[in-house]
């Protein structure tokens, strides 16, 4: 009997992709999928510890009013769980320490980066070392992009993937490291799991293939264990052939390419490695 995969999709305060993220978990075969409002965690009605796969969906936490996910990150760091002295962030650190998986998409990725969970160099999950900032174009854009998976990456979510096609939908997705040293570490440890690329899979620095001007075309990064992963593009937006912008003119498989990310997560939790 394989291990049960219990997925939690965290919502509230401005997230908006929770439904499709939960659906992606379902299609990927997770056994339990709960869409949980942040208040349920803060009121102690639901506990992170009961799950093995945390999904942080896209959206606009607090409107991204102070910069993407900034106020959201502040809440994780300072909101206390009712009846405990613990802050929510402490539960998150325990979750990571237990080797469980976290996937942040778009605003969820921005949240992970601003909390310091990603890239979490040297397992330091409390210091922000990279950021996601305003697109070079100065505008929000909804656009499909090609992504090249880094075969050398420890990322458990991108295992076996090569070139995939997902939409980006953001105004603040430009990946910027704090320093050249940070960038070097990300490169050396192959933490860049996804790069924006052209249709042939070559990393792209030119707009619009690189839609936001991300340094080194980085679209998604993981931590050193590969169990925490965040990306700007939306895999949960491509779950069925009809999501593809050219499905009426191309031969595509029925299953959307986004499911692979979630299936990798589910399979990893079921595996011995977990």
């Amino acid at each position: 009997m394989s291990r049960k995969v219990k997925a939690i999709v965290l919502t509230g305060n401005g997230t908006n992709c929770e439904m499709e993220m939960a659906h992606a978990c379902k299609l990927a075969g997770a056994d339990v999928i709960d869409i949980v409002h942040l208040s349920e965690l803060l009121y102690g009605e639901k506990r992170l510890a009961d799950y093995s796969f945390l999904n942080l969906p896209g959206g606009f936490l607090d409107g991204d009013d102070l910069g993407s996910a900034k106020a959201g990150a502040n809440r994780f760091l300072h909101a206390r769980i009712a009846g405990h002295q613990e802050i929510l962030f402490a539960d998150l650190i325990d979750f990571i320490a237990a080797g469980k998986l976290i996937l942040g998409v778009c605003n969820g990725f921005q949240l992970m980066v601003k909390l310091g969970l990603l890239p979490g160099l040297e397992s330091n999950y409390t210091a922000q070392s990279t950021t996601l900032t305003f697109n070079d174009s100065g505008r929000f854009e909804d656009r499909w992009v090609y992504l090249k998976a880094n075969a050398q990456s420890p990322c458990v979510f991108t295992k076996g993937l090569d070139v995939v096609y997902y939409p980006v939908r953001h105004g603040e997705g430009k990946f910027v490291p704090a320093s050249a040293t940070v960038l070097k570490q990300i490169a050396r440890k192959n933490l860049f799991a996804f790069q924006y690329c052209d249709a042939d899979g070559l990393p792209a620095m030119q707009y619009p293939a690189n839609p936001n001007g991300s340094i080194n075309a980085i679209a998604g990064i993981c931590n050193e264990t590969g169990r925490l992963f965040g990306l700007m593009p939306h895999p949960e937006a491509y779950l069925h052939r009809t999501n593809h912008p050219r499905w009426t003119r191309e031969c595509l498989s029925e299953e959307g390419q986004g499911i692979a990310i979630f299936r990798n997560a589910v399979n990893f939790i079921r595996s011995k490695e977990f």
Binding site: C17, E20, E141, D142, A237, L239
Partner: peptide
């Protein structure tokens, strides 16, 4: 059009 999210909720056909 590009500046509007036209596919959140993942049902766009």
């Amino acid at each position: 059009v590009r500046q509007y999210d036209h596919e959140v909720q993942a049902g766009s056909v």
